Simulated scan of single mutants.
Amino acid sequence: MDDQDLRKRIDDQLDKLESTHSFARAVFYGQNGQIPYADKEEQQLADACKRLVQNVIGCWNCLYLNQYLLQAPAAERQQVADAIAASSPVSWQHLNLHGEFDFSDEALKDSLRFDVEALFAFQWESPAGPLV
């Protein structure tokens, strides 16, 4: 209890955990967060769909942050990496969770493209040497 650094790290982790719960509530907004199905199989399906959407959003955020890190100038890359490390991919304020979703070719023509091979091949240079 006397270790202030440990208490701060625990508090930060608890904040991230609460953010994860808020994220789950935001994704599952229908019926006030209640699953109105009597059948256990339908409840499990609704919960699995919610988890799938959460995982897709987390994956999107990770890909986007990695792409942002790759495109950052070398002089700013460490600052960007520190900001990413201090945050969490569990974020949804930039997403439209309520509304119309358009995945047509026309709507996606200017969307962000990820070079996944470049993400995997990226060599991070730190002051102590390259990290793999």
Rank of each mutant, 00 (worst) to 15 (best):
D82N: 15
L95T: 14
L131C: 09
E42L: 10
F114D: 05
Y37H: 14
C49N: 15
L97R: 08
V132D: 00
A75L: 01
D110P: 10
Y64D: 02
L14A: 04
F114V: 07
A85E: 03
P89E: 04
N66F: 14
A81K: 14
Y64T: 02
E18D: 10
A81V: 13
S111A: 07
S22F: 11
A121C: 08
D39W: 06
F28L: 10
D11N: 09
P89I: 05
F28K: 13
Y64Q: 01
I10T: 03
K16P: 04
D15W: 01
A24M: 06
A128H: 07
R77G: 01
G58M: 14
W92R: 07
L14V: 05
Q34E: 04
R25K: 14
A83Q: 05
A26P: 02
Q31S: 08
Q44S: 15
Q67H: 13
K16W: 11
Q13T: 06
D5N: 04
L63I: 04
A118V: 10
S87N: 09
P36K: 11
V27Q: 00
L119D: 11
D110V: 10
L52S: 03
H21S: 03
A26C: 02
D39V: 12
W124F: 05
P127E: 06
Y37N: 14
L69D: 12
Q44G: 15
A72T: 03
W92T: 06
K109S: 11
D11V: 10
V56F: 00
S111E: 02
Q43E: 12
D105I: 12
V53P: 02
F114A: 08
A83L: 11
D102H: 13
F28M: 12
A121M: 06
Y68K: 08
F103L: 07
S104T: 14
D105R: 14
D11P: 07
A86C: 14
